[in-house]
Amino acid sequence: MREEIDTEAGTARVTWHESRDARWVLAVSHGAGGGVEARDLQALAAVLPAHGVTVALVEQPWRVAGKKLAPAPKTLDVGWRGLWPALTVPGLPVIAGGRSAGARVACRTARELGAAAVLALSFPLHPPGKPEKSRADELLGAGVPTLVVQGGNDTFGRPEEFPEGPHALVEVPYGDHGFAVPKRAPLDQEAALKVITDGVVEWIASLGRPS
């Protein structure tokens, strides 16, 4: 099911992948360089409903409007806040998620919006080649249980660069910022995506059954 939601930043779009036995909702948005067709988002939408998780793939207003460049972080937050009420299903806790820029949005707004947890896919810890410009404060300030899923070769921050903190981390070996793996890697693309989906399923199970 697909629906459009008006926000102060424009019209957003949500595509629902519903679970028949839903215990959680995972609302997950894209990054600044692509949409919800990203391989990791599609893999989660395909796998998680069988594990009691309804997945809501969120397209930010700038993407719905056909723009090629994402707006400033504050505007991204405005769009996310505006569509959040539409993501809440009565009786189901919502995990705020996103990839890259979307992960930053989820971390910045999680506590304010009452998210049960945060899923940060390819968290951009710093711009490529500029580790001094760290965004670790956004991740560490999420204030709720957080899982980072990071490619081993992500130029925006490799797993070993992440600071210690109240978050779990799953590494996708050889994966880049989009979780693509080289053809010469010991695991293929399907296996890399399974690392992601298995890790997320296990982490959500570790959160315990929602009351």
Rank of each mutant, 00 (worst) to 15 (best):
F179V: 01
G152W: 06
V25G: 07
S134W: 01
R99E: 01
A103G: 10
E190G: 13
A96Q: 04
A115V: 02
T146Y: 03
V172F: 02
H126Y: 15
I5L: 08
S29H: 01
V170N: 05
A50G: 11
V200F: 04
L140P: 13
L92M: 14
D176W: 04
P93V: 09
G165Y: 07
D176V: 00
Q60T: 05
H177K: 09
R20G: 13
W84D: 11
P131N: 01
E138K: 14
P173Y: 12
P159M: 00
A168W: 02
V36A: 03
E8W: 08
L125P: 09
L76T: 02
V172H: 04
V144R: 08
V170K: 09
A142T: 10
V172A: 05
L121E: 00
P182R: 07
H167I: 04
G141T: 15
E8L: 13
P159I: 01
E112W: 14
L44A: 06
A45L: 00
T109I: 03
A116K: 10
A22I: 11
G152A: 06
S122V: 00
P90I: 10
S122Y: 01
D188E: 13
F179Y: 09
R81T: 14
D198F: 11
E202F: 05
L57G: 01
T75F: 06
A46L: 04
A180S: 14
T54F: 08
P85C: 11
A106W: 08
G208Y: 08
T11C: 02
E190K: 12
Q150G: 00
D137E: 14
A22H: 12
W62V: 02
F123Y: 13
D40F: 04
T11H: 02
L57H: 02
A50V: 03
S19T: 04
A142P: 12
G33L: 11
E161V: 00
A38P: 04
P127Q: 06
V58I: 14
L125I: 10
K68S: 15
S100M: 12
V105I: 13
Q42H: 05
V94C: 11
P61G: 03
G91V: 15
R108Q: 14
K67L: 15
V144N: 00
F156D: 00
W203S: 00
V181E: 11
Q42T: 01
P186C: 13
L125F: 06
A72C: 00
A116H: 09
R158M: 07
K130T: 05
D77V: 05
T54K: 09
G82N: 10
V144F: 10
V200E: 05
A185S: 11
P128W: 06
H126K: 05
G33Y: 01
E59C: 04
T11K: 06
G152H: 06
K130L: 09
P163M: 05
